Computed example of a mutant assay.
Amino acid sequence: MNRQLYAMHNTIRFVTDQPITEDEWQTIEQFFQYVDRQWSRFDPASEVSRLNGLMVGESLSVSLPLARLLQRAIRYFEQTEQYFSPFLLEQQQANGYDRSFPFQRGVESLRFESPPESSPFVVEGCDVTRVSHGTIDLGGIGKGAAAMLAAQRLRKKQPRGLIEAGGDVIVWSDTQPWKVAITDPQTEQAIAEVQLRQGAIATSNRVYRSWKVGQRTNHHLLSGKTGRPIETDVVQVTASAPQLYEAEVMTKLAFQMTEAERQDKLFKWFPKGRLLLMDESGKMVVEEKGGQSIWTG
């Protein structure tokens, strides 16, 4: 069975061997409607926007799913030495990403704040308190979290399923593995295939969410250290991991690190992870803990 809905500026696709009941589907739709309302940085009434509007010392009670997501995002921020940062909204806006996609041209801000080096927020239960400067942009980890929560619900009754959300894929199967195609960011033609029975895959590239600022091209992949678009010859990264949260974070780290840094840091933090990297020449390499090899299909 194949069903889909639109949320978080992406088509979310659900594939299961057995039909999803109408009651179950209605619950899933309502959950994604909640995510669209409350996790968006573009809606001034959302919980995320209200958190970003807090003054230092002020607190806000948020929904349990958002509180748990913030706790996880902060944990990855600290674990990865700020290579991954969910607190780059001001930097995204300063680089010209000040509206939802698609758009072709942006304007950079003359005022640029350095990214925070510690979490601007403290989460206690469902209460979130601002302790310093910095603003939240949940981005890919928010999309991944929503897909994971939906998968946790579905897999209680579905022995085999797949959820795909704009480059993020979660699969589970008691029988045959899933075959997930990886596409070229320019041509959208399949260039690789990953087989997976349980786990998650996240793919990110610097082509789709990019825009012109004068004669220069900016993209949405920012350095957690500088807040500026990452300069790299890596065009696309696909990461596989047991959980989609991990795969999402791995893609952001992989763009920022050299091969040596990935071996020294990334695979220390995510030892079960695996990367497929594509550079500007079209060459693809596979990386995992212990080394790198050329992708042969």
Results as ranks from 00 to 15, higher is better:
residue 203 T to N: 11
residue 82 Q to M: 10
residue 93 Q to I: 15
residue 199 G to S: 05
residue 206 R to P: 02
residue 84 F to A: 10
residue 110 L to P: 09
residue 35 V to M: 03
residue 223 S to M: 07
residue 80 T to F: 08
residue 116 P to G: 01
residue 9 H to M: 12
residue 179 K to P: 00
residue 17 D to P: 00
residue 27 T to C: 02
residue 23 D to R: 10
residue 23 D to P: 00
residue 65 P to G: 01
residue 229 P to N: 11
residue 216 R to L: 15
residue 185 P to E: 09
residue 5 L to H: 03
residue 217 T to C: 04
residue 100 S to C: 04
residue 278 M to C: 06
residue 224 G to D: 08
residue 15 V to N: 00
residue 270 F to T: 08
residue 288 E to P: 00
residue 59 S to E: 13
residue 10 N to H: 11
residue 230 I to R: 04
residue 32 F to A: 06
residue 144 G to F: 08
residue 233 D to H: 13
residue 211 W to F: 13
residue 199 G to I: 04
residue 7 A to W: 03
residue 247 A to E: 14
residue 101 F to M: 15
residue 237 V to E: 08
residue 71 Q to I: 00
residue 101 F to I: 05
residue 30 Q to G: 05
residue 291 G to L: 08
residue 209 R to C: 06
residue 31 F to T: 07
residue 156 K to F: 03
residue 152 Q to K: 13
residue 110 L to A: 08
residue 227 G to A: 09
residue 195 Q to F: 01
residue 154 L to G: 05
residue 87 F to R: 12
residue 130 R to M: 04
residue 67 A to N: 03
residue 146 A to T: 11
residue 14 F to R: 00
residue 297 G to K: 07
residue 123 V to M: 10
residue 26 Q to M: 06
residue 186 Q to W: 14
residue 27 T to V: 12
residue 134 G to R: 10
residue 162 L to Y: 00
residue 42 F to K: 04
residue 159 P to I: 05
residue 103 F to R: 09
residue 155 R to D: 05
residue 122 V to Q: 10
residue 98 D to T: 07
residue 240 S to C: 15
residue 149 L to Q: 14
residue 35 V to Y: 01
residue 183 T to F: 12
residue 92 Q to R: 12
residue 155 R to M: 15
residue 181 A to N: 08
residue 111 R to I: 15
residue 71 Q to G: 13
residue 274 R to G: 04
residue 297 G to S: 07
residue 102 P to L: 10
residue 187 T to F: 03
residue 49 S to G: 01
residue 213 V to W: 02
residue 279 D to C: 07
residue 244 L to G: 06
residue 31 F to R: 14
residue 129 T to F: 08
residue 95 N to P: 04
residue 143 K to A: 10
residue 33 Q to R: 15
residue 215 Q to R: 12
residue 186 Q to V: 11
residue 56 V to M: 01
residue 248 E to N: 15
residue 76 Y to S: 05
residue 138 L to A: 02
residue 42 F to I: 07
residue 240 S to A: 12
residue 120 P to Y: 08
residue 20 I to Q: 01
residue 292 Q to T: 14
residue 51 L to Y: 07
residue 180 V to D: 02
